[in-house]
């Protein structure tokens, strides 16, 4: 069961990366020039369904894949998404409170994840802190993730619960 959950989580991450680089890629769906941070959102919303150790490792793997698909230094997104996964896991009890709380946590951690990337990127000479329009690049993905969080959270709930039922039977 644990293995299946991890496999489903990894598949979700890969789908998120493909959509992030194509559907939400340049010249596509990017309201005000900035796309939602789909991969971060998926990592956050997986928290209630995956054991902490696996969740942190999936966060690291997703970040490393983002690094490999991006233009920056390898390891920066890996660090950022590991932080996001760890924080999401620490807040996982809150996910049960309400859907509103889930959405708020998703937006907050999207912002935190990008902020960690900007800070670490600057330390490694990427100049991310001095990029024009930095505030928009940090805030808008968090804002767009508010809208995407509800369908994805509900989708995960349906997917993992239906699999639980299948595993139980």
């Amino acid at each position: 069961m644990r293995r299946s959950r991890v496999a489903v989580a990894l598949a979700s991450v890969i789908v998120a990366i493909v959509l992030q680089t194509t559907v939400f890629g340049a010249g596509r769906i990017r309201p005000f020039g900035v796309a939602p941070a789909l991969v971060i959102l998926v990592i956050v919303l997986l928290a209630p369904y995956i054991e902490a150790e696996y969740h942190v490792m999936i966060g690291f793997t997703a970040g490393l894949l983002m690094d490999l698909m991006g233009s920056g230094t390898l390891g920066l997104w890996a660090m950022s998404l590991t932080v996001v996964a760890f924080m999401a896991h620490r807040l996982r009890q809150r996910f049960a409170d309400s859907l509103g709380m889930t959405v708020a946590i998703a937006a907050l951690l999207t912002f935190v994840g990008q902020l960690v990337f900007v800070v670490v990127g600057t330390l490694f000479g990427q100049g991310t802190m001095s990029e024009p329009g930095l505030a928009g690049k940090l805030l808008l993905p968090a804002l767009w993730n508010i809208f995407l969080a509800v369908p994805i959270a509900l989708g995960f709930r349906l997917m993992f619960r239906s699999r639980e039922r299948r595993w139980a039977s």
């Binding site: 150790e53 230094t73 590991t82």
Partner: peptide
């Protein structure tokens, strides 16, 4: 504690990867 150690290890690995890549 185990999760925290894993988290810190992965961050450290990320840091090492970034250093090598730079």
């Amino acid at each position: 504690t185990r999760v925290t150690v894993l988290f810190l290890s992965l961050v450290a690995i990320g840091f090492i990867i970034a250093t090598f890549d730079v």
